[in-house]
Nucleic acid binder design. Structure first.
Length: 664
RNA sequence: GCCGGGGUGGCGUAGUUGGCAGCGCGUCGGACUCAUAAUCCGAAGGUCGCGGGUUCAAACCCCGCCCCCGGCACCA
């Protein structure tokens, strides 16, 4: 019996969860946790909502609400999604709790005692009118290198050099250009991340054979490039207070405290159990294993920053960080702002969570990005989940129940070969699940189901029934035992379905109690219940009708007046020249003829349109947009294009018109 | 440009100590009728991105190149 900590990345509480979140970390973590529980190991699975991110403040501002209100709202929504999807957290909390705050303060104290936290005085841009410090990117001024006027406090777009805000000449707040900025001294706490480079390299040097190569490579690369000490406090109001005099107006930077949630949630869970020390079984036991589940964007936080903190206070390091790649939607990344997403709450309104668990496990982005499409979802659910697995259970149980309503009995196993196949599949699954290879585990189970379908056709109990009823009964017990095995084996993937099948089989207790190692134990007696199909078949046409109409009128922007519209000067022009931007890979420089002198446009269409596709083409351009420079080159307008998922398509008049023609 | 991942039959994919290239969907033919028009059997279909090299043997190792995806730089 082992103690296994299943730690899952903390979702930002600024929006609902989508399929990518599920496939990326919550489902794999849950499959893993359920597998270990079935094995009889002690699992502690924790996560929660990250309440303090800047995106939440932005969302709150947009909605005119308080950050806490927004965060709690999404925390509730996401907690419910987790529950409905059957993600079996021992605790799904959030970072805006007294328990989390207490642990964060404790960890900072431990790091501080060990000499890894130090205050440093820096100068930062301060807006005297607003009475607050400003983030560098909200500061504008004249670039000391190229004298361009629109340089930001973090970088000058004109010459591309990175800057500090205090290098700018005549700095002012971007949002209030008339205010003269001051630079005031401000003290912040820094985490001496750089002190951990050697220790982290040592840690990564051995015993990491089971790590995914991308995780390991990515991490080593980061370390090679060197670690920079990072500020862990910020001049903000939303976040965890800093336990130090003089820091009353500051908060702990979210990247620093959110990862501590793994530890705080373990402790919080223990308190809720009524045993404040219960967490130690996972954190103090040298044999305990910690696994962290997340998508690839989170790798450095879990392989460098959090481990550094763990080293700094002498806590247990991750055993594995099996980060996934991304699940894409129709080959393009999920995106909240582009409304390119399938949200979990929307999915759950119409479809079966267990079918989604099946499908996402089958296409899980374990080695590389994979795609969700509704067509593929319907196909795989109908053919693999229902046709192969669901139908097998249904055909065996319903046939046996119909013909032997009073029960079946056999003294020995009538299908030794098939039982061997089951043993083989069980062993394969065991290896795969222990190594977090969930697609492989699922495939092993379906192979068994497929082989059982074949054996059933071969044995043809519906024929035998008429010739030798007793022999048929014995044979059916053999098949029912395979169904029994499958109903346990499917539990990590589809827990509710496994339980339902168990009930139809008329077996006592729950399959969870019986456990993983009892998969091959055979029963001699079955008294079945009349089964109903385990899954509902999907109709592709109907699904597409529901899901495909673009949600055009969702999230409509606020209404504007005709006068507002008249402010836009949109013209037709002809592209007369196309060149590459000298310093940027994604930008074209277009010369466009509007009937007078040509204008230069900088546009991000490189990679979408080839030069010869643009040359000579008429396009629609917003020409009175404020001029900005893109990596040093000024753009005289914005090209209009339609965007749908991955497709970007230029607008053009459907017949040749005079250059400079207005669009209205 | 830098970093990471990937290019395998129409589509989606497996293949980590180099040893006859597997699987699912789709297609075609057949079997069966217990089952959710489901299941099973068989067939067609692959220069394993390209070019070199190492080896008795390369999808796998080495070198060079091309293309795709993501991150950064950046941008919509």
């Amino acid at each position: 019996m082992k103690h296994v900590l299943v730690a899952v990345a903390w979702p930002y509480a600024n929006g609902p969860l989508h399929l990518g979140h599920m496939a990326g970390c919550y489902l794999p973590a849950d499959i893993f946790a359920r597998y270990h529980r079935l094995k009889g190991n002690q699992v502690l699975m924790v996560s929660g909502s990250d309440m303090h991110g800047t995106p939440i403040m932005v969302t709150a501002q947009q909605e005119g609400a308080e950050p806490e209100e927004v965060a709690l709202r999404y925390h509730e929504i996401n907690s419910r999604s987790m529950e409905q999807m059957g993600i079996s957290f021992d605790l799904f909390t959030h970072t805006h709790t007294p328990e989390h705050q207490a642990v964060v303060h404790e960890i900072i104290g431990r790091l501080d005692d060990a000499g890894y936290i130090e205050p440093r005085t820096t100068t930062a841009p301060y807006d005297p009118k607003a009475g607050q410090f400003l983030p560098d990117r909200y500061v504008e001024g004249t670039c000391p290198h190229c004298s361009s006027t629109g340089a930001r406090g973090d970088q000058c777009d004109s010459c591309g050099k990175t800057l500090d805000a205090d290098e700018l000449i005549d700095p002012h707040p971007k949002l209030n250009p008339e205010v003269a900025l001051e630079f005031r001294e401000t003290e912040h706490l820094f985490f001496r991340l750089s002190a951990f480079r050697e220790k982290l390299l040592e840690w990564l040097a051995e015993g990491k054979e089971h790590w995914k190569s991308n995780v390991l490579n990515f991490t080593r690369n980061w370390l090679e490039e060197g670690l920079v000490d990072r500020a862990v406090t910020r001049d903000l109001e939303w976040g965890i207070p800093v336990p130090r005099d003089g820091y009353e107006d500051k908060r702990i930077y979210v990247w620093f405290e959110a990862v501590m949630g793994y530890f705080s949630a373990s402790r919080h869970w223990a308190q809720l159990q009524g045993d404040d020390e219960a967490w130690r079984k996972w954190w103090d036991d040298p044999e305990a294993e910690h696994r962290y589940f997340m998508a690839k964007d989170n790798i450095p936080f879990h392989t460098i920053i959090w481990p550094a903190m763990l080293l700094g206070c002498g806590l247990k390091l991750p055993h594995d960080v099996p980060a996934n790649e991304y699940l894409l939607l129709d080959s393009a990344q999920f995106s909240k702002s582009r409304r390119h997403a399938v949200w979990i709450p929307d999915y759950l309104e119409r479809y079966d969570p267990e079918a989604l668990r099946y499908y996402l496990a089958a296409v899980m982005p374990e080695q590389k990005d994979t795609s969700f499409t509704w067509e593929d979802y319907v196909t795989r659910v109908n053919t693999e989940l229902i046709g192969n697995l669901g139908n097998l259970l249904h055909r065996v149980i319903s046939f046996a129940q119909k013909n032997f309503p009073d029960g079946l009995h056999a003294d020995e196993c009538s299908l030794p070969e098939l039982r061997d196949r089951a043993a083989e599949a069980h062993a394969k699954m065991d290896v795969a699940l222990a190594a977090c290879k969930f697609k492989r585990g699922l495939a092993a189970m379906l192979e068994l189901s497929q082989a059982t379908n074949a054996a059933l056709n071969e044995a043809a109990p519906w024929k035998l029934l008429k010739q030798d009823r007793a022999a048929c009964e014995v044979q059916l017990v053999g098949f029912l035992n395979i169904c029994r095995a499958l109903s346990i084996m499917m539990l990590p993937y589809m827990p509710r379905t496994g339980e339902t099948a168990w009930q139809y089989l008329g077996l006592s207790g729950t399959p969870q109690e019986v456990g993983w190692d009892a998969v091959l134990d055979g029963e001699n007696d079955f008294t079945l219940q009349r089964p109903k199909p385990l899954f509902a078949k999907l109709d592709l046409q109907k699904v597409l009708e529901k899901e495909m109409p673009p949600n055009e009128l969702h999230e409509l922007k606020p209404e504007i007046s005709f006068n507002d519209f008249k402010k836009l000067d949109i013209r037709v022009g002809t592209v007369t020249g196309v060149e590459k931007h000298p310093d940027a890979d994604k930008l074209w420089l277009l010369e466009v003829d509007f009937g007078g002198p040509t204008r230069r446009l900088v546009t991000g269409l490189r990679g979408i349109y080839e030069a010869d596709e643009l040359q000579g083409r008429q396009i629609a351009v917003l020409v009175n947009l404020e001029r900005t420079k893109f990596r040093g080159v000024e753009s005289g307008g914005m090209l209009l294009a339609a965007e749908s998922g991955k497709v970007v398509s230029l607008l053009q008049p459907d017949q040749q018109v005079e250059n400079g023609s207005r669009i209205h």
